[in-house]
């Protein structure tokens, strides 16, 4: 499974201009204001694996996803897909690449055009890439509906006739219709009930096995991530603070924020594990704390953390950006 790299992201950064309109700025003598949604994010996704990004609301998960599929332009950084640098401005070259990746969205009620029939929705990528024609399209749509557990007769219905879980199946069928290798899934089950979530997660796994798909899975739910992914990246205020193999991350988290996230997961096993109460809330991303952005909430905070941004240090199966991790390393070397 640890095959070649399918997607490589280097130094991805995205700033949003959130200044007031020009006139207001002049009148109020306000400065231009920027919000850094992502800063210097780098990771690799290997062919056939599921790489997960976790983080709380506003940590920049969706922004990364949107930059990768070309919905947002990066302010800095590069994205390589199967060795090709993605340049969304170039038409013909990009068209070929575009067919090979797809996206599944969070809200199954907003992700399907309410005025289109399900068949037309699923066929849109087929038409856009000119993959099939005429009756073949109808047959292919029927096959895709079967594949995701619906029936080919559903092609003639409108989205409002389906439940949330069924709509998410339709969205998956649409994503599969261009026969992609890589699918970005932004919170694909957060809007669903657990019993429906189980169906969708199982379906995603089955499809991955059948077609050798590679997933970038975005979620704030650690249990889902644990269940689905091979490797995991943890985001805090737009920066990747830790990357590790899934098992290692859960058994031996390195970064204090990762540990805190794990502690916050309610204990369904009723093991009586007393959770360490997490303190504080995510700071305002417009004006993040200097040094390590996590320092106001960190139980291990040191003086250096307040001034210097920690650099990524290699860990057993990935890396973590934390002065305390580095210090530990130094200790253990001694």
């Amino acid at each position: 499974m640890s095959g070649d790299v399918l997607l490589r992201v280097e130094g991805l950064t995205r700033r949003f201009d959130i200044s007031k309109p020009w006139l207001n700025r002049v009148v109020e003598r306000a400065q231009k204001q920027y919000l850094t949604a992502n800063a210097d994010v780098s990771f690799e996704i290997r062919r056939g694996e599921t790489f997960a990004l976790v983080g709380e609301s506003g940590s920049g998960k969706s922004t990364i996803a949107k930059m990768i599929v070309g919905l947002l332009e990066p302010s800095a950084g590069r994205i390589h897909f199967d060795g090709h640098e993605m340049d969304f401005a170039s038409g013909a070259e990009m068209r070929k690449l575009r067919r090979r990746f797809q996206m599944i969205f969070q809200d199954p009620f907003a992700s399907l055009n309410p005025r289109w029939r399900v068949g037309d929705i699923i066929a849109e990528p087929i038409h856009t890439f000119g993959l099939l024609k005429g009756a073949e399209v109808t047959r292919e749509v029927g096959r895709l509906l079967d594949l995701v557990g619906l029936s080919s007769a559903d092609a003639g219905k409108f989205p409002h006739e389906f439940s949330g879980g069924q709509r998410q199946r339709i969205a998956i069928a649409r994503a599969l219709s261009s026969k992609p290798e890589f699918i970005v899934c932004d919170e694909p089950t957060s809007a669903l009930d657990v019993s429906v979530q189980a169906q969708i997660l199982n379906l995603m796994r089955d499809l991955q096995d059948e077609f050798g798909l590679t997933y970038l899975l975005i979620s704030h739910d650690l249990s889902v991530v644990r269940h689905m992914s091979n490797r995991i990246g943890v985001l805090y205020l737009g920066r990747l603070v830790e990357v590790a193999e899934a098992r290692a991350l859960f058994t031996d988290p390195q970064h204090p924020y990762t540990r805190m996230l794990l502690d916050a997961v309610p204990d369904l096993a009723l093991s009586g594990r007393r959770r360490r109460p997490v303190t504080g809330e995510i700071p305002n991303p417009i004006d993040p704390p200097p040094g390590c952005a996590f320092h106001p909430r960190c139980p291990l905070v040191m003086d250096v953390c307040r001034q210097t941004l920690p650099q990524p240090r290699a860990t057993a199966s990935g890396h973590a950006s934390c002065h305390a991790v580095a210090a530990q390393d130094a200790l253990s070397v001694d």
């Binding site: 919905l71 575009r98 996206m103 992700s111 399907l112 055009n113 649409r174």
Partner: peptide, 13 residues
């Protein structure tokens, strides 16, 4: 800003 429009943009419509 709805996701169905984003889905179309992703495939380059």
């Amino acid at each position: 800003s709805k996701e169905y429009v984003q889905a179309a943009r992703v495939i380059g419509v």
